[in-house]
Design a protein around this nucleic acid. Structure first.
Length: 416
RNA sequence: GUGAGCGUGGCCAAGUGGCAAGGCGCCAGGUUGUGGCCCUGGAGAUCGGGGGUUCGAAUCCCCUCGCUCACCCCA
């Protein structure tokens, strides 16, 4: 095989589109039900945006971006995540002067240079939402609910919602010190990565997967137990509101997230896979991000959802996809005059709003085969007999029944 | 970045040193103008690529590329 799609990318073939239509259509539908409006930002941004927004020491920025210099000498980065670009757009277009909060959603490709594996690609598609300009916990609850209702809407079940609060600029520093103090005496007993994390990114100590570190994680102080008064009441509010939605949640003190900008609420939604649970949705509050990007202090919260993972789970759970029961017609013809008439009839059917295709110029048997394998619901058969009478033979391929229909009545016969 | 498994027509796949099976799909037929089932025929292969061993390599050895899975990280 000489030419193929670049590593970690894939083609979304015609046969795959049933899923993509479902997954994209429901995204727009559910998001707009909650009052979110679509935003689309460029596929690439100034490299600077992701460094400042996502955090220059995160893995994403450190080793996973597609960064390049364009012909004019600017350093650009393919969209490595969508929150920072949306915040950039919020600032650039003065959305702070709109009624707050501003609710937006997007479905867009995201690029990260990673080693591909199941559910992880170098180009993947995210359905995400962002609410900017309101810090109240009811918004946190709403954002979580959008993600949850969406996954319900596409037909997934058995999902798990996990939440946590990691505090804010007020209380997190003290908590991080507490964590470091918990770990420092054990530097020799934990894994190498964790030893490094103590100084570099202490929060990440909590999601280490190594066996030797598990007992330290168990005994570690929890961020949610060490919140300042404001964060504490925000955390309580969130849980109270969540109860009102009827969505079940678990609190996981080990849930921290990989992007630097998160504050207070963080959450994930995962499918019911035994063994490894690959997160479908990950999100959280980012009250410091807008300011980090040069705006006035403005709260925000959102999530990102991997649509390839959603589709993977739809397939695993064998969720039925909606069938398209509209008529699709194959115009089958015999003889030159009939072929010419077929061109005319197919054209007219389309103008009448019916999907119609002219069968390829082969024997009738082959044309009928083509009709069947193309998924056509009906064959409109034209030959000299029909031409003479100004009718067509309309064959219902599902029912294997046919009758002659005057050409003028074809469309109405197909629309009933 | 680390580790493991795997690369044979479009897809699935047999073949483990001696003429590259088979199935699906595709194309054409099975006497008058009709799909799905059945039957017949046909097209389609640098056996991922390069090098080596050998009289002879899809098969053994080396290198390389790719795919998949796991770690890491993340959606």
């Amino acid at each position: 095989m000489r030419l193929q799609a670049p590593r970690g990318t894939s083609d979304q073939l015609p046969d795959d589109q049933t899923y993509w239509d479902l997954v994209r259509g429901k995204a727009a539908q559910v998001a707009s039900t909650f009052g979110y409006r679509r935003i689309e930002t460029p596929m690439f941004e100034s490299a600077d945006l992701f460094e400042r927004g996502v955090g220059s020491t995160t893995d994403i920025v450190e080793k996973e971006t597609y960064t390049f210099e364009d012909r004019g000498g600017d350093m650009l980065t393919l969209r490595a995540e969508a929150t920072a670009p949306v915040c950039r757009a919020y600032l650039q277009h003065g959305m702070h002067s709109l009624a707050q909060p501003v609710r937006m959603f997007y479905v867009c490709p995201v690029f990260r240079y990673e080693r591909p594996q199941s559910g992880r690609y170098r180009q993947h598609t995210q359905f995400g939402i962002e609410v900017i300009g309101e810090a109240d916990a009811s918004i946190d609850c709403e954002v979580i609910e959008v993600g949850w209702r969406y996954l319900e809407a596409v037909g997934l079940s058995g999902l798990t919602l996990v939440i946590n609060s990691i505090g804010d600029a007020e209380c997190r520093p003290a908590y991080v010190e507490l964590l470091k103090a918990h770990y420092s005496p054990h530097r020799e007993e934990i894994c190498e990565d964790c030893a490094r994390r103590i100084d570099r990114n202490a929060l990440r100590l909590l999601d280490c997967k190594n066996a030797q570190c598990q007992s330290f994680i168990e005994d570690a102080p929890a961020s949610a137990d060490n919140l300042c008064a404001d964060c504490e009441s925000h955390w309580e509010d969130l849980r109270r509101y969540l109860e009102e939605t009827g969505i079940e949640y678990q609190i996981d003190h080990r849930l921290v997230r990989g992007l630097d900008y998160y504050t207070r609420t963080v959450f994930e939604i995962s499918p019911p896979e035994e063994g490894r649970m690959v997160t479908i949705v990950g999100g959280g509050r980012y009250d410091g991000l807008i300011e980090q990007l040069g705006g006035r202090p403005t709260p925000g919260i959102g999530y990102g959802m991997g649509l390839e993972r959603v589709i993977q789970n739809i397939q695993r759970q064998e969720v039925p996809t909606p069938a398209d029961d509209r008529a699709r017609v194959m115009v089958v013809h015999r003889g030159d005059a009939a072929k010419t008439a077929g061109v005319r009839i197919a054209s007219q059917l389309r103008r009448d709003g019916i999907a119609a295709t002219l069968a390829p110029p082969r024997g009738m048997r082959a044309q009928m085969r083509y009709a069947a394998s193309s998924g056509a619901t009906h064959a409109v058969i034209i030959g000299d007999d029909e031409l003479a009478k100004d009718v067509a033979t309309l064959r219902d391929l599902g029912a294997s029944a046919q009758s002659e229909v005057p050409l003028a009545e074809l469309a109405s016969a197909l629309l009933t």
